[in-house]
Simulated assay, not measured.
Amino acid sequence: MFKNVFNDYYVKDISNKTRSALAARARAGKYLSSGIYGYQKDPENKNQLLPDPETAPVVRRIYSMVVSGVSFRSISRTLSAEGILTPAAVKGVIPRKETTRPTDWSPVTVASIIRNPVYLGKLVYGRSHKVSYKSKKVVATNEDHYIVTEGTHEAIVSQNVWDLANEVARRHKKVSGTGDVNIFSGLVFCQDCGSSMNLSRNAYVCYRYRNFSTSENGCSSHRIPYKLLYASVLGSVQEVTAEARRDRDGLIAKLSGIGQKKQQAALAAARKDQGKTEKRLAEIGELIRKAFEKNVLGSLPDDMYNGLVTGYTKERAELAAHLETVTEQIAELTKEADNATQFVELAEQYVDVKELDRDLLHRLIDRIEIGESYKEDGARCQKITIYFRFVGKL
């Protein structure tokens, strides 16, 4: 029995050491797997990834198709019809079923590519783990325990494209029996209850109203005809894209929340404050060091030393808190300006737009909220709030 216990301890120890070694290599940015679709291993360094000239374009195309609103199932069917080898086939993995062809893509495979951050040029290790060294069961790991190493290899897609593809993929997309795509699907929400609004008989209606009517858990219909929504959104898009062409810098300044000069002045003042605070923190560190040396040499009495260190420590804590606040302020001011610039650059791509499509809508707009209709001077009125990407509602 003692021998069994010792063997069990030995196996467990080896397992822990192996995990630790792999984790250390992951932190160092070394690729540890057998391969990833879209990349190939560097012939001179097996732990380094390089974009594969054959499969990287397929990855970019998949992201582009998702951003355009194409479903995972439609993408898998398209790739299969074109005879493109699956990731498993590229690896040389033998399929479990004899009837499975090397070009039979599945929606699950497409989804795994869209959700994999490796295409951003970073490695994420430990997304799943075995329950124990005695079991083969694998479970998902909490994101807090991931080992993420940035900039380990060349990215295949940009952060914006990756974010947008994953966001669009989360939105529900419906296709009618005739194959027509509902271009607003996943974008339209009830302004009052926050529920999604679904297309029914050429009009969008609140989901909660359809399911609960006006009961305690219900809502009102917030009904808006498809044609009215289309015309309203098209008009707003045309207005903002026209302004982007007419006065690019002015629009950026307006979208930044404050005037461009004021924003730059606030940013300069915050950075000056940051530098001043960092300088004082460094001075305090030096003062504490000198006080310690004098105390050790006997030229500074203990009571004076303790009083100085207490005061310096308090000031350092206050400065550290202030520095954190200033740093956050700088990040917010910078982000505000960057977001405005990103949106205007995006809007410039759709100048002179004549009609809406799903790709345009999901690239430019985060969500659309519909208020309940009401009468004003005998006319039907309804509030439509459009939240654009990066900048929110205008």
Rank of each mutant, 00 (worst) to 15 (best):
P53G: 01
V139G: 04
S135P: 06
K137F: 05
K294Y: 15
N7W: 14
D357P: 02
K134R: 12
G259V: 04
E345Y: 03
K272F: 04
K136G: 15
D338P: 06
G235C: 13
E332V: 12
K393Q: 12
D192P: 00
E167S: 15
F6R: 14
P301N: 05
A320V: 03
V181R: 01
L333K: 01
L50F: 11
K134V: 15
S158H: 07
G35K: 07
K137D: 06
V110N: 06
A282C: 01
L229A: 12
D377E: 08
L50Y: 10
T141E: 10
K136W: 14
R316S: 15
A24V: 07
D163A: 13
I84H: 12
K335Y: 02
G285K: 11
R96D: 06
I113F: 11
K3E: 13
M65L: 08
A155N: 09
K136I: 14
F189K: 10
G235F: 15
S20C: 07
V168H: 06
V11I: 15
Y119K: 04
N217G: 00
S221N: 10
P53I: 03
V391N: 00
G92I: 04
E239N: 08
N306I: 12
G235P: 15
E293H: 06
V157L: 08
T100N: 05
Y387T: 10
P301H: 03
G151S: 14
K46A: 06
R27T: 10
G186H: 14
Q329P: 08
I365F: 09
E355L: 07
I384A: 01
C193K: 02
L32N: 08
Y350Q: 02
S196I: 00
D352K: 02
P117G: 06
V67I: 11
E348Q: 09
G378H: 14
Y37G: 02
A242R: 13
P225M: 07
S64F: 11
E336L: 11
V175F: 02
A28L: 03
A291C: 07
D52M: 09
H153F: 10
I365Q: 10
A56C: 03
F390H: 15
L287R: 15
E243L: 14
E328F: 02
Y374H: 04
G151W: 13
I14N: 00
V240K: 03
L356F: 09
R96C: 01
L308D: 04
I370Q: 00
A282S: 02
A242Q: 14
G151H: 15
L123G: 04
N166V: 08
A165E: 08
I147H: 00
V70N: 05
Q48E: 14
E216K: 08
